[in-house]
Write a protein that binds this DNA or RNA. Structure first.
Length: 635
DNA sequence: CGGTAGTGCCAC
DNA sequence: AAACGTGGCACTACCG
């Protein structure tokens, strides 16, 4: 099979498993110093221009709608509707399109979260949308990127010609977390638009500006796809926030009681923590010590002969070892401190206060911030949804008669790197379910030194994070010999970043340029200290850029995965809903009898996502999906 | 008094 | 003060 790609023609053989290769017939292996190649060919995928319905937030509680035809012109009259009427209009348009067998409209608005919350509450399905705010952010960054820093073929040969009509909003600076207790007083979990947003005319102009900006891109199809996936993500995020993660407060309280003792009645520490605080004071002979104060604690530790310069648990643990063996006396000194720290973390970040604040009616409703991370990953706000600790996961329980389908992509980033770099050897390893194990086996077969799974894992993560020393850095030479293209790819990104230039993901999301201060630091090399600072900042931005290309492209796969799952669940028409997402992991809450079907949908969506983002590539991204009742049992 | 830098730890 | 990326958040200490 021959496939046209930006690189030229790539042959993907499908004769036998293990024989799929990136066969690049033009272009050459990229090295760390090589420049981007000539402009690529467009991917041969016809774009069917859809109809848009622009939705502008007017006076509080009202909306103005305008149909915009495929050529960007107004069709028909404006329609003003209230919050209550909006869902009905959406249903009518979606159903009309379905009946007629035509593409549904693209609901086009400044910010998905507000209208989507209304629609979720009304149980209304939206097939496609365009989040002009999120797309503007992507395009604004792309439009500043100089061609000299272009890394991938999606890269622009020149700054993108994007003239925004709307002020691009920084997604990381929108209002902070709103605990449910405050919001639910009004009977809604969501803030309703308080101010009049941009009008229909401005939204139409912005849509046009974005469409023409994409057309000036080196690879319009990829960039359009990115904008479409980002918008789809906003729909997924709104739905998940609305539904929330099923959370059993009784189980949660039981975990707390087992670890900390009974719930304290006042402001005092829980019983177990009070006891431990006393033990710490005794062990360190510091009767008035507040163990929550790192400053006091460090002082007390040093007075007690614990030779550390930080109170980090990791360092304390290390200190107990003498010649690699735990020394009894040292362990006894430090053990209460370590135990106290552990429980203090449990109490403060997942304790009763957290439960009261964030769990209402058996659901935890974090807010997802699409594009909240520069790489395109999502951020989350409110209750720490990015860091639900392992020890508390048992509180995540399916409703009676329901199940949780929990799935995560195994070693997503190295697989994505194989695609980015068109590295056949790494692609071959990706065909195993356990990529690191495959590498170790390849190493054995080829007589390489990289023959252990744990080493392969460290080496690959090290390559993507920019490790230079320690376990990660140690295996780099072997890794480079086995996978020269993959290593070369991330090395190239690092070199570009070290120069202060921008890099981009597969679909064309650009890394931000460094601050003006960064460039100041680069110039201030007249002293030795300045020289050191400059080199340090340069390497740091290099590591960021190295990671950006992989993490950001992986995030694009994840967006597509979510989108296909959302669509798949809807098409199947089951009692099944996406309730959680974290980088490379999803959770679906569904009726017990649908669990197996959901599992299939989630697995199939992973395959679809590879194709949606990367086209036909000889790399697999397997997902491990388990059906459980408790999140603690996943994996 | 509120804002914020520093510290430390959780997740991927 | 983890060599090595991206985040959120709680707590203390400090500052205006």
């Amino acid at each position: 099979m021959l496939i046209r790609t930006p690189d030229g023609v790539v042959e993907v053989s499908s004769r036998a498993p293990g024989n799929h290769m990136f066969r690049v017939t033009s272009g050459s292996t990229r090295t760390a110093s090589s420049r981007p190649r000539e402009p690529p060919l467009s991917e041969p995928r016809p774009i069917m221009k859809p109809m848009h319905i622009v939705v502008a937030a007017a006076e509080p509680g009202t909306w103005v709608l305008q149909v915009v035809s495929a050529n960007g012109e107004r069709a028909g009259q404006e329609l003003a509707v209230s919050d209550e009427e909006l869902p009905g209009v959406v249903v009518q348009r979606e159903e009309a399109a379905a009946r007629a067998g035509v593409q549904p409209p693209v609901w086009t608005w400044q910010d998905t979260s507000v209208p989507a919350a209304l629609l979720c509450a009304a149980g209304v399905w939206v097939t496609r949308c365009r989040d002009l705010g999120l797309c503007a952010t992507i395009l604004a960054t792309a439009s500043t990127a100089p061609g000299s820093g272009a890394l991938d073929d999606a890269g622009e040969p020149r700054p993108l010609d994007y003239r925004p009509v709307l002020e691009p909003a920084d997604p990381r600076h929108v209002p902070g977390p709103r605990p449910l207790a405050a919001a639910s007083n009004q009977g809604s979990l969501f803030a309703v638009a308080e101010e009049r947003g941009p009008g229909v005319t401005e939204l139409i102009a912005e849509l046009a500006a974005q469409t023409s900006a994409c057309a000036t891109s080196r690879n319009p199809q990829r960039l359009e796809r990115l904008l479409s996936l980002e918008s789809q993500g906003a729909l997924v995020a709104a739905g998940m926030r609305h539904r929330g993660i099923p959370w059993d407060p009784a189980v949660h309280e039981q975990i707390l009681e087992d670890m900390l003792g009974p719930r304290p009645t006042g402001e005092e520490r829980p019983q177990r923590m009070q006891e431990l605080a006393e033990q710490v004071r005794a062990a360190l002979a510091a009767p008035t010590l507040n163990p929550d104060s790192p400053v006091e604690l460090l002082k007390a530790l040093r007075n007690a002969g614990v030779d550390v310069d930080t109170t980090r648990a990791f360092k304390l643990q290390e200190w107990t070892l003498v010649n690699g063996q735990p020394q009894e006396q040292r362990v006894a000194t430090v053990a209460p401190v370590l135990e106290y720290k552990k429980l203090s973390r449990v109490f403060s970040s997942t304790g009763w206060h957290w439960l009261d604040t964030w769990v209402q009616d058996g659901r935890f409703h974090p807010e997802y911030v699409v594009g909240g991370v520069v790489t395109g990953r999502w951020a989350a706000r409110g209750g720490g949804a990015l860091q639900i600790p392992k020890y508390i996961r048992d509180a995540v329980r399916a409703d009676p008669g329901h199940a949780l389908v929990v799935a995560d992509a195994a070693q997503l980033e190295p697989r994505v790197l194989a695609i980015l770099a068109r590295d056949d050897a790494l692609a071959e390893a990706s065909r195993g379910r356990d990529l690191y194990e495959s590498i170790a086996q390849q190493g054995q077969a080829r007589g390489s030194e990289l023959t252990e799974r744990s080493h392969a894992k460290l080496a690959l993560l090290g390559a993507m994070y920019g490790a230079t020393s320690g376990a990660g850095g140690r295996f780099m030479p072997q890794l480079t010999r086995m996978f020269p293209r993959a290593v070369g790819y991330v090395e190239h990104a690092a070199r570009v970043g070290e120069l202060g230039q921008q890099v981009c993901t597969y679909l064309g999301r650009w890394s931000p340029a460094p601050d003006p201060e960064w460039f100041e630091v680069q110039r201030a090399t007249d002293t030795q200290a300045g020289e050191r600072r400059a080199a340090q900042a340069s390497r740091s931005h290099g590591r960021f850029s190295r990671n950006f290309v992989v993490q950001g492209s992986a995030a694009e796969w994840a967006l597509a995965w979510l989108g296909h799952i959302r669509q798949g669940l809807h098409t199947a028409g089951m009692d099944a809903e996406l309730v959680f997402f974290l980088h490379d992991e999803v959770m679906v809450h569904c009726a017990q009898e649908h669990a197996e079907r959901v599992q299939q949908i989630v697995e199939h969506a992973a395959e679809q996502a590879v194709h949606t983002v990367f086209g036909a590539v000889p790399v697999e991204v397997p997902v491990a999906a388990s059906v459980v009742t408790s999140y603690a049992d996943a994996k």
